[in-house]
C-alpha cells in the first residue's frame, strides 16, 4: 500500500459519502444520474465477490463492504426513498449500450476464463464507463450543482491517483495489471473535460455550467 493508493481510496470514499450526504441533507437526488449509480453498485457487487473466497487484509475487507453498502444505499435513495425528486427525464443514457459490449469484452479479454475472474474483469471495464450517464445528464441540462461537481472531482481524483499508484508499483514492486491499467486510463480520460471545467469554474466560485 503506497500513499497514492491510500489517498486514492480515501478520495473514492469521500466521493461516495459526499453524494450520500447531499441526497440525505437536501432530501433530493435531482441532478444525479440513477443509471450511473446503479452501474457503480453493479461494479462493486461483481468485483468484490472475492470477499467470500479471498482474505487480503482487514482494510481491504472493510473498504469493500463500505463501498458495496454505500452504493446500494445510494441506489435505494434514488429509486425508492427520494424517487419523487429523481430527474428521470434527463437521465436518458441507454445503459445497455455500455453493459452489453462491456460484458462481451470481459468474456473475450480477461486474465483467466473463470466465473469470478470474468465478473472481476466485467466490473473493471464497466467502472471505466459507468460515469457516462452522469456526464451525459450534465451535458443535457447544461449545468451541475456545486456539490455534484465536488462529487465528480473526488471521483476523478481517485482515478488519477490510482494511475500514479500503478506507476509507483511498476517501478518499486514490478507489479502491473494491464487490464486494470488500460481501463483505468480510459476512465481517467473521461474526466479530463470535467476537470477543466471544475478548475476554471467551480474553484472560482462559479456554478458548473456548460456554454449553450
Amino acid at each position: 500500500m503506497n500513499v497514492f493508493r491510500l489517498i486514492g481510496d480515501l478520495s473514492h470514499l469521500l466521493a461516495i459519502l459526499i453524494l450520500l450526504w447531499k441526497i440525505w441533507k437536501t432530501r433530493s437526488c435531482s441532478g444525479i444520474s440513477g443509471k450511473s449509480q446503479f452501474l457503480f453498485a453493479l461494479v462493486f457487487t461483481t468485483r468484490y465477490l472475492d470477499l467470500f473466497t479471498n482474505f487480503i487484509s482487514p482494510y481491504n475487507t472493510f473498504m469493500k463492504i463500505v463501498y458495496i453498502v454505500c452504493s446500494c444505499v445510494t441506489v435505494y435513495f434514488i429509486y425508492v426513498k427520494f424517487k419523487a425528486t429523481y430527474d428521470s427525464n434527463h437521465d436518458t443514457f441507454r445503459v445497455e449500450f455500455l453493459v452489453v459490449p462491456v460484458g462481451g469484452l470481459a468474456f473475450l479479454v480477461n486474465h483467466d476464463f473463470t466465473p469470478l475472474e470474468i465478473l472481476w474483469t466485467f466490473s473493471i471495464y464497466l467502472e471505466s464507463v459507468a460515469i457516462l450517464p452522469q456526464l451525459f445528464m450534465i451535458s443535457k441540462t447544461g449545468e451541475a450543482e456545486t456539490i455534484t461537481s465536488h462529487y465528480l472531482f473526488a471521483l476523478g481524483a481517485y482515478r488519477a491517483l490510482y494511475i500514479v499508484n500503478w506507476v509507483y508499483r511498476y517501478y518499486f514492486e514490478g507489479f502491473f495489471d494491464l487490464i486494470a491499467i488500460v481501463a483505468g486510463c480510459v476512465q481517467t480520460i473521461l474526466y479530463c473535460d470535467f476537470f477543466y471545467l471544475y478548475i476554471t469554474k467551480v474553484l472560482q466560485g462559479k456554478k458548473l455550467s456548460l456554454p449553450a
Binding site: 493508493r5 481510496d9 479471498n54 487480503i56 469493500k64 463501498y67 472481476w120 490510482y162 495489471d177 486494470a180
Partner: peptide
C-alpha cells in the same frame, strides 16, 4: 502460464 493473482486493489 499466467496465474491469477489476488486482487489487493479496490
Amino acid at each position: 502460464d499466467e496465474e491469477t493473482q489476488a486482487k489487493d486493489e479496490l
